[in-house]
């Protein structure tokens, strides 16, 4: 089934979907994200923020930038129109200064998610077994400690339950030092939904939901990145 977002990216010769496109695809599959709107001017950014409701987050949308906050491409907790307008200009300038020649598609405007326990859900393709899902705690832990678990798609909720319990950092999800416990059924459901999403989209080669905020009452993909396979 051809998908308009995927077809449009292919039409432009892109394999990397930007955050706005990635989240739209995920939302269409019933996966909760901080839905993002693309603004290509200061005025559009302010209008989008007013529609979404404050506070909002602005993030640069660029195929050339992997770590947005490292180049000044992220502004958090913007509470009014003036702040959004200033942040829009600030992001565009900062990014261009940090990385001359960078392509900027615009700025994504989205709800400021309330803080939660950071986890990641990712997908890569194995040469023998096809899509493989990965789960881990977010932030530096996943990068340094490689404290992640894997399962082959299709991943059932039972598999997802094992994935969640398998990581060494699991106690963090149960709540430590006064932190709230994460809602494990919501996380399991999210992983199983991502598995279903991946099955429906064989054209997707890689997917990263990083971070997902795990809450006592749900789970929300705060950033998303999708890479298509060669057409």
């Amino acid at each position: 089934m051809p998908n308009a977002i995927i077809e449009a990216a292919r039409g432009e010769g892109r394999t990397l979907l930007n955050e706005v496109e990635s989240k739209q695809l995920l939302e269409d599959a019933g996966i909760s994200t901080t839905r993002a709107r693309l603004a290509t001017s200061r005025e559009q950014a302010v209008a989008a923020a007013q529609q979404i409701g404050f506070p909002v987050v602005l993030k640069v949308v660029s195929p050339d930038i992997a770590h947005k906050s490292d180049v000044g491409g992220v502004a958090l907790n913007l509470t009014d129109a003036n702040a959004v307008g200033a942040a829009y200009d600030g992001i565009v300038q900062a990014v261009k200064a940090a990385q001359p020649g960078v392509r900027v598609q615009g700025v994504a405007v989205q709800t400021m998610a309330r803080p939660g326990t950071e986890v990641i859900v990712g997908m890569t393709r194995d040469p023998q077994f096809g899509p493989v899902l990965m789960f881990g705690l977010g932030g530096i832990l996943v990068e340094v400690l490689k404290d992640v678990s894997f399962r082959i798609v299709p991943v059932s909720e039972r598999d997802a339950d094992q994935m969640i319990h398998e990581i060494k950092g699991f106690p963090v999800l149960e709540g430590v030092r006064g932190q709230h416990a994460a809602n494990l059924p919501a996380l399991k459901r999210l992983i199983a939904q991502v598995s279903g999403f991946v099955e429906q989209h064989p054209e997707i080669d890689e997917l990263d939901l990083n971070p997902v905020f795990a809450y006592p009452d749900g789970a929300l993909a705060v950033d998303a990145r999708i890479v298509l396979g060669a057409a």
């Binding site: 194995d126 040469p127 023998q128 077994f129 678990s149 894997f150 399962r151 082959i152 598999d159």
Partner: peptide, 15 residues
């Protein structure tokens, strides 16, 4: 045989 990561094999055996 194609090499898959051992972590993928461990996962599928467990799964």
């Amino acid at each position: 045989s194609l090499a898959s990561s051992q972590r993928v094999w461990d996962a599928l055996v467990r799964q």
